[in-house]
Amino acid sequence: MASSVASKRLFQEYRTITNDPPEGITAGPVTEDDIYVWEALIQGPEGTPFEGGIFPAELKFPKDYPLAPPTMRFTCDMWHPNVYPNGMVCISILHAPGDDPNHYEHASERWSPIQSVEKILISVMSMLAEPNDESPANVDAARMWRERRSDYEKMVRDNVRKGLGL
């Protein structure tokens, strides 16, 4: 029962995001045989070192979606303060309320069933443009972003080119 709610909701979100995709985002299930695993492509925001890049990520939804948020993992080289070295994205919208050990995230920013895949992807896109220095998932990247911004930007730009096979 619960899983049919989840799959219906995911299917509906798939249709919405297909018919009216946000700028620079393509997302959908890897295969419809398993609607709980999606792949998203996110375009790097303009005016940032990520500009021009396409960043693939995998979203995994729990069976009790939308009560619980999905997890999101970049499947490309992603050098960013809020992305773990293994690609896992650490952002408040992916955290359920009540799971805030640091007490800096507002409840409104966190996951709730009124959020959606589209909102997650848009949030992640703006996260690329503006890292949150308060909760570094990648301490090295956070330090580089803070102290050696030009090195950070070069690294990101190199990854952009590498991702496009250039």
Binding site: P56, C76, W79, P85, A141, D151, M155, G165
Partner: peptide, 18 residues
């Protein structure tokens, strides 16, 4: 901390290959 600035993680294939 890795000595170089490169993150130590498996490199992903680029999108063209993938």
């Amino acid at each position: 901390r890795p000595a170089s600035s490169q993150p130590r993680k498996p490199s992903h294939p680029d999108l063209i290959t993938r």
